[in-house]
Write a protein that binds this DNA or RNA. Structure first.
Lengths: 336, 336
DNA sequence: ACCCCCCATGCAAGCGATTGCATCGCGCTG
DNA sequence: CAGCGCGATGCAATCGCTTGCATGGGGGGT
């Protein structure tokens, strides 16, 4: 209720001075500042954000674009980013875009963000060039988490290395017919993690002198259900498969379900390795390449704020991963 | 870049008419409206939200308060709510408050929301009376999901019945020494789900002629780690326990881990039942009382918008639950 | 002592919409 | 044919804060 004028009147100064005092600008004497602060607190004054946005052109809000919130990676990135931003006084506007609406996929329309955010964080959302261009066209800082175009600031893993490490783990155990469960390709821009993890998979196979076989690669939609369906399909077509590398833990869990559906034991009949370090991986005994999604979200938020403040930032940040060996991988059974 | 004035000039009308035409107000002739729409589209005009907020006093934004986003229930509610709100042209401002900061728990400070949202959705956040009062004091519609004070609009389960059903399932299987893993009580207001689920647990025991035993109830912090620790503790103190009712699936999964740590088999040595219908429940074979969190979030959002629009709303919505029997529960082993 | 400079403060013009009220035509009615 | 009423439109105040510029007063340098 109390506006800046009330505070000004109570403190016996002009609104300009109140504004300066409250924001800690210089050129306000200490006694005056204290008096203003005291009156503002007493009256419970809270500045109206739309008024100050209108006057300054900035919103102290950042937009978080993501396809989902109820998936391990996304939820953790969002939580990390939200925490960092809130601690620094920024609000978080959440926008979800379901990338699975394949037919008429809802395109990312940046006009919604215009005049509404000081910067945008794109979390694991594969965008085509037009979408990126229009986002850049907002003229506000932009950062990507998980994956992003080469010329934009991105916080991510080395996905090629990740795919290679997962596949190499299976190769080291002695597997030779290794399936790969990944994301849907036609919705995926050239720079999305599934593509790079697949590349790592291919490189590892090649390094072992094995030929890449398209019949071993299936699309798992990046969730449990998709991982299950596609692995079911794979196991039916290729009963010779002894191991599967899934590009996410959720798909890996789907793969385990598929194996179980078929009466196969994990890891005796089928080894499964995922990527993420999902909270429930231990429960399931899932071997995985673990990453810290929360930290990536947190750091990406800080990076974005640096950009907003005009500070120099690295063009990208690469995070470490760690192979976590659990019960879902083992050497293949000797051929009878 | 283009402001309302540019559109007005291009269409040869006043800004007032542009404003009316764009918002579909009456008293604008059809030819004029069409012309304005065309010019606005051509110029790529997007209204500045802060300006219209300042003028109207509303923000077309709603605040989503929640303790976490990376937990099954919360992530799904948030996703459902976000989808409903976006479809109706509302923005979502995400605020997380970690309730676990026990020492100096960050209190919910509604001043952050003042002048910033048209309504607030509180998701599974146990608040004390002061906090609720200050939220109400914002003078904006308020709705709760998961749990809420008796005099506020709430979307939720019948938690007492849920606790009763879970416990009854164990009783029906023949269990008589049933542990209970629930939330931390000192952070929990009188109306939080753990309290009511515990009450259901107690009622079911009583119905079976069993006395409630405080030594059987432990605090699991509502997550996997907490469920694991507290169940470990419980099993050590009370080796006679043959079944556990956990107030969430995540705690139930922790309980399974605890059993495994101790070399107990589930369900042969220990039956476990949870609440939620977590996506990964099937993988783990977890028996649970399932609910639809996404739908609750979706409907709560619609309810809140009705309140904003002055439409009459029910004072609360109660959702159905369903017992899903899986491998984690079975009759107790006959005593040797 | 005199000036100059700088610091603290106030004035008032925006920022970009919304909206109550006045105005302007026009067709209709008596 | 004059007057009336109503739909369409414009004018200008307003929302609450920020900020460039003007002002005034005090202290320090010479």
């Amino acid at each position: 209720m109390a506006g800046i004028d009330d505070v000004a009147q109570a403190a016996g100064v002009s609104t300009a001075t109140v504004s300066r005092a409250l924001r800690g600008l210089p050129n306000v004497s200490e006694p005056t500042r204290l008096r203003v602060l005291a009156e503002a607190a007493r009256l419970g004054y809270v500045p109206t954000p739309s008024a100050s946005s209108l006057a300054t052109g900035r919103t102290r809000t950042i937009g978080l674009l993501t396809p989902w919130v109820n998936r391990w990676f996304f939820a953790n990135v969002i939580e990390g980013a939200e925490r960092a931003l809130r601690d620094l006084g920024y609000d978080v506007l959440l926008y979800t875009f379901d990338v699975r609406r394949t037919a008429a996929r809802r395109r990312v329309d940046p006009s919604v963000l215009r005049h509404r955010v000081d910067g945008t964080l794109v979390v694991g959302l594969p965008l085509d060039d037009d979408e990126v261009r229009s986002l850049v066209g907002l003229g506000r800082p932009l950062a990507f988490v998980g994956s992003g175009p080469a010329d934009q600031v991105t916080v991510r893993l080395d996905d090629v290395a990740t795919g290679r490490a997962a596949t190499q783990h299976l190769l080291d155990l002695g597997h030779r017919v290794i399936g790969h469960v990944t994301g849907v390709p036609d919705l995926v821009s050239s720079w999305s993690p599934p593509v790079e993890r697949s590349q790592g998979y291919a490189e590892a196979l090649e390094g072992a002198g094995l030929a890449r076989d398209p019949g071993l690669e299936v699309n798992g939609d990046f969730d449990v259900a998709g991982g299950r369906e596609s692995t079911t399909d794979l196991l039916r077509r290729r009963p010779d498969v002894t191991a599967v590398f899934a590009a996410s833990d959720e798909m890996a869990m789907g793969a385990i379900l598929a194996a179980r559906d078929r009466g196969l034991r994990v890891p005796e009949d089928l080894s499964v390795v995922g990527v993420d370090g999902h909270d429930l991986g231990e429960l399931v005994g899932l071997t995985t390449i673990a990453q810290d999604a929360y930290q990536q979200g947190f750091d990406a938020a800080l990076l974005l704020l640096d950009m907003i403040n005009g500070a120099p930032v690295p063009e990208s940040l690469t995070y470490p991963t760690e192979l976590v060996r659990r019960r879902s991988t083992a050497p293949p059974r000797p051929v009878a």
